[in-house]
Design a protein around this nucleic acid. Structure first.
Lengths: 227, 227
DNA sequence: TTCATACTTCGACCGTAAGCGAAGCATTGG
DNA sequence: CCAATGCTTCGCTTACGGTCGAAGTATGAA
């Protein structure tokens, strides 16, 4: 009847509260089992199973069998981007969940956005890289400069292996809390993994909050100074 | 139950086919009456009325009474951005409407994205401005350079009046068809209006397609050359 | 005033989909 | 082999919301 892609199908998928909860939980980046997701969504395993198969059919999540568990994850960066975009919009209209608990400030400070760092610290990192011309921004594309390549290599990131992956190395992603860009793409993922691996930070149990250790925070400030 | 903004409400609003049709129709940028929208959505006026009040309550559309007509329009650029984002995602998953008519190529070439030019020509314009450093891009923000100010003034656009409006002068917006940036914001709107006013282009009846006249196309190519 | 148009409200109908209990497959562990 | 865990499928109920006919309100035209 009308031209263009069909919005309503995916929107309807996200539009159910239980499914929205599931997707929000998966924004934390880690794959979760069906029962864990049922718990997060506040429904029984049967119901969650039905929702998950619909999400899978719609191409929003991926499933991976492992023993008697089935792990679900978002099917890609683009899903995360759509969700963040919706969150940002919802926040701008004041549509927040009833219980915005004490976690909220921590969530704004540093959180995981699917698989990379978001929140204030994510934005700080992005700005710091941009100010020192370690990354360059043309239009929407973000690229690593020559100095940038050296910099991230010094941080112990193996660019060669990252560039073998089809996903773009750098992408910018918009924050719902700060409304500014932070770094996504394989490099964004690799940096977050590095924070974990070197004990700069760890992820809170089942939540999107990322907490930096005192030492980790100092190292972060050294690595990503604000001008 | 969970932290963060509530996605499901807005997603549910967009998730109904009739409402999605209404919103897609409003992406054309012009305000439409309730009955026109009912026609576009393929439902009776009563049903459309119900949908429209819901959309209004959700903050997605605005209503303005004029005589015995009620004109509806998207409530802001951000709504358009969310919709375009969803379209892009839907297109990437191959979720296109059944009847992708002969208008499709024209739609990709030049169309209206809420209130500014999108499609190939929109991207061309954006690239041309950026290549000649008439606009500068930092992070996600787009700003008009000094040369840029002179350039658009020469095109007959009054920057002073534009800058009195609260909306940002320049914004970048992502295409679902081309997946690259084009220019939004009040300047994007003003440029499109200028195309109309000088008969470079006109909008097709009730559709998002923008057709340039032969003369208009030539002038466009002169104003926004590709490097 | 009367009629027509534009739109909304009301009420009723109906379809779809969310939800859960119970049972059915898998996989692991004893 | 049997029990336990993880998850799905089936069948059923329920309820929410989309839909439209009919009637009601506003605005404009004759």
């Amino acid at each position: 009847m009308k031209e263009g892609p069909d919005i309503s199908q995916i929107a309807a998928l996200i539009g159910d509260p239980a499914r929205a909860n599931i997707l929000t939980a998966l924004m934390a980046g880690q794959a979760l089992t069906a029962t864990e997701l049922a718990l997060q969504a506040g429904v029984t395993p049967q119901t969650a199973s039905s929702h998950l198969s619909k999400l899978q059919l719609g191409g929003l999540v991926l499933m991976r069998k492992q023993g008697r568990h089935r792990y679900f994850s978002l099917s890609g960066d683009d899903v995360g981007a759509v969700l963040e975009n919706l969150m940002q919009f919802a926040a701008s209209r004041g549509l927040t969940r009833v219980r915005t608990g004490p976690k909220d400030p921590a969530l704004r400070a540093a959180r995981v956005c699917y698989n990379h760092l978001a929140g204030d610290m994510g934005v700080t990192m992005f700005d710091s890289l941009a100010a020192r011309k370690l990354i360059g921004i043309d239009e929407d594309a973000v690229r690593l400069t020559e100095q940038g390549r050296i910099f991230v290599s010094d941080l112990g990131i193996e660019l060669d292996s990252l560039e073998k992956i089809k996903r773009p190395l750098c992408r910018s992603c918009l924050d719902w809390s700060v409304r500014r860009s932070h770094l996504a793409g394989t490099l964004g993922t690799a940096l977050l993994d590095m924070f974990y691996a070197n004990n700069w930070a760890k992820r809170e149990q089942e939540l999107r909050v990322v907490t930096f250790s005192r030492n980790g925070r100092e190292r972060f400030n050294v690595a990503f100074p604000v001008s």
